[in-house]
Design a binder for these strands. Structure first.
Lengths: 306, 306
DNA sequence: CGTCCGGGATACCCTAAAGGTATGCAGGAG
DNA sequence: CTCCTGCATACCTTTAGGGTATCCCGGACG
């Protein structure tokens, strides 16, 4: 089962991306023949060609496509392994927890406070990162824990729900929906919604309320980078937005009204960690957070059942 | 970032398990000095010791513990990569789908039938495996898809809910609870429940209805291997059991009564695939299954929302 | 108190395999 | 026909992984 070597996987990946052995070899800092050989070796061992070699073109075979995806996972796992091990090697465990700027950070500070008061608590570093960067930090081993909010990509993570909160639609005062006292996702279909920088397809559906069955696809709205900009854009009548209730309460504006949306999926705040066994310090932190939220759910939110 | 080599990880893992370099080396088919060197090399590169070397004993450091977990993941990913690539290399894609014996297999046949009727469908192999073996087959790359039922270990899988079904308690006729028309999880606490061979702690809590908040821990009951044995054991008054409704309906017996349990978590049947990008054939199969269930939920079950 | 033993580290050699340079060979453009 | 591009082949050089022998150190034992 000694299938291959991480080095070979890197070579293969470079070749799969470049679709040109010479350039791939250059990128890997070796010359072309060794790279060719490495790939032929892999093909021989796997018993299946990875590339279609046309004379002036190289394409991936089905097996190659598969290996491209898989190789990615393997290399990521390896990189994460090294990072995590390094960090575990520092004397005196340090927990690194990331959160997005804004209320998440504030919540995180409270959890960290409660945690720090426990006997045997490790030092805790709070890393405030850009929106959408938390999950990546977890997967790469840069952080031990992340406080994140829906939507996020759950892949490779174990999430512990902390609280969930209703979402309301932010509607410009002049809008046809501004008079309504209650909306459904279907009412929002076809309306323009702001786009976030790192928005995935799933994320866009979420923010526009289309992640429940409701039909119609969201219209592309202006690009926004933070909450105040989002509200601004709504105020100017350029878009609608679905926001958690606490955002609505903290951003009262004369030119925006907030209307509950009956069937929008809730805005969930979760504590996430990488899959697999966790260090005791991580376990303790998670339990502390869960206990804290079970006891006193913060304003406007409902503690989630375990 | 050229941290290490899969071979080194294997060596490390052997050493971490044996806690004896000589034996570990023997297991890896090499002599002791190269193994020692490999590990020192890793320690040098990582900048942290992995083992405490007592003179007559070797123990893992914190970093070593971490690496042990991580190395596992990396090696599993690598093994899966090779298996999946091999299988993708066979001409004419073959989907391998696993299910437990019983109704799951029957459902799977229906899905496969609908799938096979589609244009461009791949050949589909159905592999019937023992209970609890499906998730492992997915993770190791032996299967492309698995039809499985709660409880299962979600780690590393992407699940697509197909249907969910109420669970009822199987109670021996003479039992104090046999007269009731409705139960709650709390009523069941302290009762003996049958154990399945591969039962995890979480699985046992699930089968005994303790996975909802309800207090008390389940009592250890006799070991059972299949459904008929389970019902038998209940009939003999040796245990209670929580079973999905369709099992109750197909196993009427004079010595067992079935009582709805109001707050037991439902019995969910899901189609699962490994995380990450999926081949088109897999995507198509999943969509076929979802459509089939959205249209006509099979007897006694409720189709899950997407 | 000396000796032996278990078990990891060191020293040194040897071979397999990765890398480099030069070149071959086949198709497409001009 | 020729040149260019781009992967494969041939052949040499270098390196590092593996083997054997040996050391070193602490513990057990007579």
């Amino acid at each position: 089962m000694q299938e291959f070597d991480l080095r070979e996987l890197r070579y293969f990946l470079a070749a799969a991306e470049e679709l040109n052995f010479s350039r791939a070899a250059e990128r890997m800092g070796i010359s072309q023949p060794p790279l060719s050989r490495a790939i032929r070796r892999m093909e021989r061992r796997l018993g299946a060609p990875l590339f279609h070699r046309g004379h002036n073109s190289v394409r991936l075979t089905a097996a190659g496509e598969t290996l491209r995806n898989e190789a990615h996972k393997v290399l990521e796992a390896a990189a994460a392994a090294s990072r995590r091990t390094r960090r575990a090697g520092r004397t005196a465990t340090v927990l690194t927890v990331t959160a997005a700027p804004g209320r998440s950070t504030e919540l995180l500070r409270r959890i960290a406070g409660a945690y720090a008061a426990l006997p045997g608590a490790a030092r805790t570093d709070i890393a405030v990162t850009g929106y959408c960067a938390q999950a990546a930090a977890l997967r790469s081993g840069e952080a031990d824990l992340a406080l994140l909010s829906t939507p996020f990509d759950e892949e490779g993570l174990r999430v512990h729900g902390l609280c969930s909160e209703e979402r309301v639609a932010a509607v410009p005062v002049g809008h046809r929906l501004a008079r309504r006292t209650r909306l459904h996702c279907a009412d929002l279909s076809g309306e323009p919604f702001p786009a976030w920088p790192a928005d995935t397809e799933a994320g866009r559906r979420y923010w526009s309320g289309q992640d429940r069955a409701g039909g119609g696809r969201p219209a592309e709205g202006p690009l926004v980078h933070d909450i105040s900009q989002l509200i601004e854009v709504v105020g100017l009548g350029q878009a609608l937005a679905l926001v958690p209730r606490h955002i609505a309460e903290r951003n009262p504006r004369p030119d925006v009204v907030y209307v509950p949306v009956a069937d929008a999926s809730p805005y969930r705040t979760v504590l996430a960690r990488p899959e697999g066994p966790a260090e005791p310090a991580v376990e303790l932190f998670v339990r502390t957070a869960a206990d804290l939220f079970a006891a006193v759910a913060p304003a406007g939110a409902v503690a989630e059942p375990a």
